[in-house]
Structure formats: structure tokens, C-alpha cells
């Protein structure tokens, strides 16, 4: 950025390393995509170059849409992800603001407690949790996931937002308070609009985790059409000891796509959100 830059120099400094990273990070996706475009018989044909598609087919995608409930899974995953992201965000905003700005009894203790929630792996929780879910009558409903996912999201999101809120100058809030605004009004009218990048980061983070979750989705909501994408794909594309690689990879590609698009729109905010939140927090 400083001094003269020739194209050669830029190539060496930027584009070469960038190419390395693109290959390293994207090769598996390239692989998944070409596998999804090959007929099954070609996949394990040793005489073909595996890095290229010899005989192109959309059969795997057709199978996905005609023989499985893929569109249904997408709908389920969307509903669950969107609603639990909203719930997590609301909870995290409140917690983040309380921890960042308010002094109240037990705040230290609660802050640490919420942070510790990081350390509890779902593999340890899901059996007792299943009992809770059934007792509350949530089994095999959207609520089973909508209410449990936030427990995985709130700790990170509120911590991130707390950091973000702290970067907002206190003076702004103080002058608003002097004008007679209540705390909640300040939160809604002043703090939140100033925190859009932080909210976006937390939101995208939450949405991604919901979209990807496997274990809870498998156990709390996998009957019939109530499956999410990862669970549906795995149970419909793997039959006994035979894997339908083509369709499996086709659904992996389609399942990853929405997330990738989401990121390409918001990645700028995501990074700046992390900058102010996680970084300075």
C-alpha cells in the first residue's frame, strides 16, 4: 500500500499466496461439486481423471428434488435457523447491554456463568436434554430446536455484543438520559442503530451455527418430514453400506450455497463487527 507497486510485485506478494489459499481452502468444494455432476458409475472408474467431469449429468440433483424431501428440509432448516437466530439476538442484546452498561447484584457471577456455557459440549447434554424436551411436550416440533439452539449461541453472541456496546461512547447515552430518555429507549434508539455491524456479525454467526447443527436436530426433530438439511441428507443418501456419493455431494453443495451467498453480502459487516466487538471486547 505504501510506495510504488508493480504488477509483478503484487502478483508475488498477493496473488500467489492468494492462489495458494484458494486451492487449499476451496479444493474440497471443487471436489464435492464435480462429484455431484458425475454419474455414479464414473466416480469409481479408475481410468478417468478424477479431477474432471467426463460425462456430465444433473441426475444427482434431479434425484434430490424428485426422490427426497429436500425442499421440505430446506424449509425446516430455514424456519428453525431464522427464529432461533432472532431469539438468540434479542436475548444477547439484552444480556450484552446489561453486562456492558449496568451494574447490578450478581452481574459478575452471571457474566462468568454465561461464559462458562461455552464449555458444555452437546454430546454431554443431549440425553438429559431429551428428557426435558419430551416433558415439555416439544419433541418433534420446531420449538425443540428453536429453544435449544440459543443455548449454544447466546454465550458467544452476548459476549460479542457486550464488547461492541462498550465501544459506544458513554457520553452519547448520558446526554440522551439527560434529555429524559429511559434506558430501554436509549438501547433501542441509540445503541442498536450504532451497533448494526455487531448485530450482523452476531446474527450471521448464529444463523450459521443453526444451519449446521446436527446432533440436536437428529434427536429432537427427525421424524418423517421434520428433518433439517444435514440430518435429512445423511439419512436419505446413505443406504446401509452404500453411499450415494453423487446425491450426497449435490446436497452438500446446495446446503452450503445459501450460507456462502449470505456471507458474500455481509462479509464486510461481519469483519467490521468482529473488529469492534470481539477484538476490542
Amino acid at each position: 500500500m505504501v510506495g510504488g507497486e508493480t504488477l509483478g510485485r503484487r502478483t508475488l506478494d498477493i496473488y500467489l499466496p492468494l492462489a495458494f489459499y484458494l486451492v487449499f481452502l476451496l479444493f474440497p468444494f471443487y471436489w464435492m461439486s464435480i462429484v455431484s455432476l458425475k454419474p455414479t458409475n464414473d466416480l469409481f472408474e479408475m481410468k478417468y481423471n478424477p479431477f474432471w467431469v467426463q460425462r456430465f449429468t444433473l441426475e444427482n440433483y434431479r434425484y434430490l428434488f424428485e426422490n427426497t424431501a429436500f425442499p421440505e428440509w430446506v424449509k425446516n432448516t430455514l424456519i428453525v435457523s431464522v427464529v432461533s437466530t432472532i431469539i438468540s439476538l434479542v436475548c444477547s442484546i439484552l444480556i450484552g447491554y446489561a453486562l456492558a452498561r449496568l451494574r447490578f447484584p450478581g452481574s459478575n457471577f452471571l457474566g462468568v456463568g454465561i461464559f462458562l456455557a461455552y464449555l458444555v459440549p452437546p454430546t454431554l447434554l443431549f440425553l438429559p436434554l431429551a428428557q426435558v424436551i419430551v416433558k415439555l411436550g416439544l419433541y418433534n416440533t420446531y420449538w425443540a430446536l428453536i429453544l435449544t439452539y440459543p443455548t449454544q449461541l447466546i454465550p458467544f453472541a452476548s459476549w460479542l455484543l457486550m464488547g461492541y456496546f462498550r465501544t459506544i461512547p458513554k457520553e452519547i447515552e448520558e446526554s440522551a438520559m439527560a434529555d429524559g430518555c429511559s434506558r430501554l429507549q436509549i438501547l433501542v434508539r441509540i445503541v442498536l442503530p450504532l451497533s448494526i455491524p455487531g448485530l450482523l456479525s452476531a446474527g450471521i454467526f448464529s444463523f450459521t451455527l443453526c444451519w449446521n447443527e446436527f446432533l440436536y436436530a437428529l434427536i429432537f426433530m427427525s421424524s418423517g418430514p421434520m428433518k433439517t438439511i444435514p440430518v435429512g441428507v445423511v439419512s436419505d443418501m446413505i443406504k446401509a453400506d452404500t453411499l450415494f456419493w453423487g446425491s450426497l455431494m449435490a446436497s452438500a453443495v446446495l446446503g452450503s450455497f445459501p450460507i456462502a451467498i449470505l456471507y458474500s453480502f455481509f462479509v464486510k459487516h461481519y469483519v467490521s463487527g468482529l473488529t469492534a466487538g470481539a477484538v476490542k471486547g
Binding site: 443431549f126 440425553l127 431429551a130 428428557q131 424436551i133 419430551v134 416433558k135 419433541y139 418433534n140 446432533l215 437428529l218 434427536i219 429432537f220 427427525s222 421424524s223 418423517g224 440430518v231 445423511v234 439419512s235 446413505i238 446401509a240
Partner: peptide
């Protein structure tokens, strides 16, 4: 009637949860 067909390795967690919690 509701029938669910699951990938082999995913049966046990599902059964374990059902044994504990029903469904």
C-alpha cells in the same frame, strides 16, 4: 402411522433418546 428410516450410525443416539424420553 409415522415411519422413520435412519442412517445406521444415527440409530443408537435416536434410540437412546427414545428410551430415555419417549417419542
Amino acid at each position: 402411522m409415522a415411519v422413520d428410516f435412519l442412517n445406521w450410525p444415527d440409530l443408537q443416539p435416536k434410540i437412546a433418546a427414545a428410551v430415555q424420553a419417549g417419542g
